[in-house]
Amino acid sequence: MSLTSDPPIDPPTEPATGPPTGPSTGPSTDPPVDPPAAKAAGPGADHEALTVVPVRHPWRWVAIAATAVLLAQFLNGLITNPGWEWDVFAQFFTAPTILKAVWITLQLTFYGTAIGFALGVVLAFMRLSASAFLRTVAYGYIWAFRSIPLIVQLLFWFNLAYLYKELQFGIPFGPGFFSFDTMNLVGATSAAVLGLALHQAAYAAEIVRGGVLAVDSGQLEAASALGIPRFRQLRRIVLPQAMRSILPNAANEIISLFKGTSIVSVMAIGELFYQVQVVYGRNGRVVPLLMVATVWYILLTTALSVLQHYVERHYAKGAVR
């Protein structure tokens, strides 16, 4: 039927004659103010000889100059103002205590992200499940952990031992097989990791769920029409495609978690920000030590951004856009 319909009509592809010559190119307008110019570029003109003159932007140059001057002043101040105490900065930037603190910060970020996203994926699929019970539980979790400020939650975990003296493993509500003293189990660092991860999981769940929802439903349909096993459908077909929209948001989350670890300093854990505070509390050199922390945060965030670029490129396989 559509094979026998009318042949497609070729639209005229002839370009309009000559470039427009101003506001008055309409056929029936009165003679323009400047008829000779209009005529020169008219139908008979030599098209090869026309050159393009870009619009000039004088104010842009003014803005560039002003910005450059301000920037130069700022950099000059950074270098010449003795208040920055760059020698102190250099002394502490790679000091063993600081390096150790950076390492702890990285560990908090790593475990917070890994556990947070693992739990987040589970919560995301609970929210997408057919069971109203699982959906509600997952939603309740996300609601709760998004509502409680991270710092409040961390302090709760830190004081867990006060709430539950010991943790028992055994039959639910029945006899226990073995038990832990919570004081030993939840040391300060694990309390911090736990807090960060549980907090992160709530956000990760929504990011993962958003990514999964962004995958065209036809993809799952095609996969199940082909008889591909359920778990494989998710791992091989849905998640790689969901990754494209998950990644930019996840990178944001990881970076903000990385900087958010500084909040853990309230629990006296020797991560970067806490350590810097300890040092300037001793020697009083607040500004250079804050710069030590700042530069480390900037360096590592940059590294994460570079990593993000490559991971995103990996998952962009086959994408037209």
Binding site: G218, Q219, E221, S224, R236, G318, A319
Partner: peptide, 29 residues
């Protein structure tokens, strides 16, 4: 799912897996 492997289905809008090559699309199932 096992029953479906005996029944091929071709969709109006193809539903190829965009992140897999043509060959990977075909050998996946």
């Amino acid at each position: 799912l096992r029953q479906r492997t005996k029944i091929g289905f071709v969709f109006q809008n193809f539903n190829l897996f965009p992140h897999l090559t043509v060959l990977e699309n075909i050998i996946e199932a």
